[in-house]
């Protein structure tokens, strides 16, 4: 934004609106790609082919799906709470989209380079929980309510390991600003926080086991934050139909769906920024620059997205008690140990 000063009132307004719409363009394109990827990966994991008729290997299928969704009738069941039912998808999407403001896509493009980026992302995602509760309640359907309550309990529980794992990243990089965090790891793959960051060799060797564990915990917790398998209890098809969005159809459903995919990239972006060098090139100063930065950032994010999809078609779903057990008795204590040990090593 610093490049666009002295534009007057309307100029500033225009630039603000255009810049805030850029992540939306990204989300829509990315959602099309990821929906296609999800179907194809699912099919190949299960030894099928998936779409083969719409274009080459079905590449046009997401666009066809999108056009189908646009034409669908807008159904609101008569027993639903109409106002909340209409409002809920927007709240969910608003929470996700708000968090995109602090995502550093590249060294020159970040919505708002605030000092507290990581904290802001964690806080903005909490709007999603309220939106999901609203959707589940407004649908006036037992499956929806169960899905919503499960989802809220799950997201609130897993916020703790997520925030603690982010705290480890903050301890090592010394900043909450995601641009600073990325610049800290600018030296290439050996300087990424997952490998201990650019510390002296002894500290690096001592700290690496803990950072790798923290990275894994953050990834697992982020799967639960976005309700992906093995933590997809809120929308468990076999028990709850579609959970909190059972009653939604057409564009309202699509808004939930896009928000879910946007959320997948959001959590991947946080993991990438803190542990995998953000937009930094893995080869140090080679192949780096604003455009290459964007490329590396999206590539790293998409690798994590691929991992999420792969896990979805590999692992079975956890039970509710196993879910809570994982969060409170496994991830959180392990993180406390990691935080203490990393703190001690950093003081060395």
């Amino acid at each position: 934004m610093e490049a666009f000063q002295n534009l007057g009132f309307w100029g500033t307004l225009l630039v603000t609106v255009v810049l805030s719409a850029l992540p939306l363009v990204f989300i829509l394109l990315y959602a099309l790609v990821t929906i296609y990827l999800e179907m194809k990966v699912a099919a190949h994991v299960q030894d099928r082919l998936a779409y083969m008729r719409t274009g080459w290997h079905g590449v046009l299928q997401p666009i066809a799906d999108f056009i189908k969704l646009l034409q669908k009738e807008d159904i609101i069941s008569s027993a639903a709470d109409r106002k909340l039912f209409i409002l809920a998808p927007y709240i969910v999407f608003m929470g996700t989209y708000g968090a995109y403001a602090a995502i550093p896509f590249s060294s020159i493009f970040i919505g708002s380079n605030i000092d507290l980026g990581a904290f802001f992302i964690v806080a903005a995602s909490s709007l999603v929980v309220v939106g999901i509760l609203m959707a589940g309640w407004a649908s006036n359907n037992k499956w929806s309510i169960f899905g919503a309550v499960r989802s809220a309990a799950q997201m609130v529980s897993y916020e703790i390991p997520t925030a603690l794992a982010i705290l480890v990243g903050v301890m090592i990089t010394g900043s909450l600003n995601l641009q600073e965090v990325t610049k800290f790891q600018a030296g290439g793959i050996q300087d990424w926080v997952i490998f201990g960051g650019p510390l002296p060799l002894l500290q690096k060797i001592l700290i690496t086991p803990f950072t790798v564990i923290t990275f894994l915990i953050l990834f697992v917790a982020s799967l639960a934050e976005v309700n992906r398998t093995p933590f997809d209890l809120p929308e468990a098809e076999s028990e709850l139909v579609q959970g909190f969005f059972t009653e939604y159809s057409g564009m309202r459903w699509a808004l939930f769906y896009v928000a879910e995919y946007a959320n997948m990239f959001l959590v991947s972006a946080v993991v990438v920024s803190f542990f995998l060098g953000g937009w930094g090139s893995p080869f140090g100063s080679a192949l780096s620059g604003p455009i290459w930065g964007l490329f590396w950032f999206i590539l790293k994010g998409m690798v994590l997205i691929f991992l999420q999809i792969w896990l979805r078609w590999t692992l079975p779903r956890l039970r509710v008690d196993q879910l809570m057990y994982t969060s409170w008795k496994v991830l959180t204590p392990f993180l406390f140990v990691c935080i203490i040990c990393i703190g001690l090593i950093l003081v060395l």
Binding site: A123, S126, L127, V129
Partner: peptide
Amino acid sequence: TQLMIYVGGILV
């Protein structure tokens, strides 16, 4: 912090 505590915690 307002968003985090009030929306993410108390409101839920």
